[in-house]
Design a binder for these strands. Structure first.
Lengths: 215, 215
DNA sequence: AAAACTTTACAGGAAATCCCCTATTTTCAT
DNA sequence: ATGAAAATAGGGGATTTCCTGTAAAGTTTT
């Protein structure tokens, strides 16, 4: 019987080692390589041509999503599975856009990962129960209103958004940018309206989530 | 021979399961329990009294550092080891202040964790090679300026901090907790003063940085 | 039991934000 | 060039937060 040849990319060596040992105990799975960063993973995958590449998202040098996108275009015969701690809609959406065949959360059971590898090897897709909700919701809402319409904020608004998230007051900002307070107030209100934010705390969290500021 | 009784707390079930299996293969180690969040971990540790508790920092409901501090004061006979992805000085410092005996990074080898558990069980401390640098630096600088004094906030204050960071207004909070607005205002002011925060944006960032809320 | 801390609560005034509205100038694409 | 969107600015009032105090009741520590 042919074993499923699996490659692992994860920067946590403890997890990687553990998975190598445990997956190898399954008699239909064989781990043929591993890597601790994206670049190394790319090289080794190109050389080893595994059936399934299991990738963490947050790995150094080349993240798992970009790596997956690259694998899809250059080696479509290598199927990719994301194994990650991230359970937000944003990451799931990005992963699916990158053309991965599987998405498993690290807080799922090991058995889920094994099932995922087997399904994906057999040409199916596999998503963790926890993330399928997002996908269904996204599918439904794409019918309802043609996708999420995040009204784009302008450059100036983004600039002010950042200053607000950094803790500046309207007055601070008006002085820093040589504007009237009223102008800043208007921008602020427009930002809030466009992004559907209710208060400053929401705004700060929005900025963190969208990497406008670093926490 | 007495086996070292180990408890595991980590929200990533895959890692937890893997470690249970692999640590149990060592003939001097026995995993007697595990948990996916801090509250559950606390209850089970109180009941099982393991020799060593291996804790992740970012676990739901009660984070690993606060849990470690609680264990130190209430069950000092349970030794604690932090197993985490965080390799910044800040986390290492907090962990040591919480009285942990070991600090191992997830991207270290599994063998390091095993060595750590053994050392800690024998009354020694163990730090990953990667983090000892911080500790030495910190030791040196503590001579320079007498160490950092972060005034601790109370339980109630912490609760209100979280609600504020979630975007609740003083009024919302006063209703949710059945307090007068004035009380909430006082708590808020005390939190700000104690933590050296200047405005709500600072407060939200503080909460994100300290994992009181998730971005 | 005394001391120290926590939680609760309130007052009053200054500062800032929020809300709803209007309005001019600039910029940019069709 | 013409209209749409963005950037600018403002009025005025309601609401909220911020700051600085005081203080009582309950809890923990010493």
């Amino acid at each position: 019987m042919e074993k499923i040849q699996v490659f692992l990319a994860d920067d946590h060596k403890i997890l990687r080692e553990s998975l190598v040992i445990l997956l190898s105990q399954k008699d239909n799975i064989q781990v043929i390589g591993e890597a601790g960063d994206g670049q190394e993973a790319y090289r080794k995958i190109a050389e080893l041509k595994p059936d399934v590449a299991v990738l963490d998202i947050s790995i150094p040098r080349l993240n798992g999503l970009d790596l997956a996108a690259r694998l899809r275009s250059e080696m479509p015969e290598v199927r990719t599975v994301i194994l990650t701690m991230h359970k937000t809609e944003e990451y799931v959406a990005k992963a699916l856009c990158s053309g991965v065949q599987g998405y498993v959360l690290k807080d799922n059971a090991l058995e889920e990962l094994i099932e995922c590898i087997e399904k994906v090897y057999n040409g199916k897709m596999f998503l963790s129960q926890d993330v399928t909700g997002f996908v269904v919701d996204g599918f439904i809402s794409s019918f309802r209103d043609g996708g999420i319409q995040t009204e784009a904020i302008s450059t100036r608004e983004r600039e002010i958004l950042q200053l607000l998230a950094e803790g500046k007051t309207n007055r601070d900002i008006s002085e820093e940018l040589n504007l009237s307070i009223k102008t800043v107030e208007t921008h602020r209100a427009n930002i809030m309206r466009k992004l559907g934010l209710r208060n400053l705390a929401d705004l700060v969290l929005y900025a963190v989530r969208n990497h406008i500021i670093q926490p």
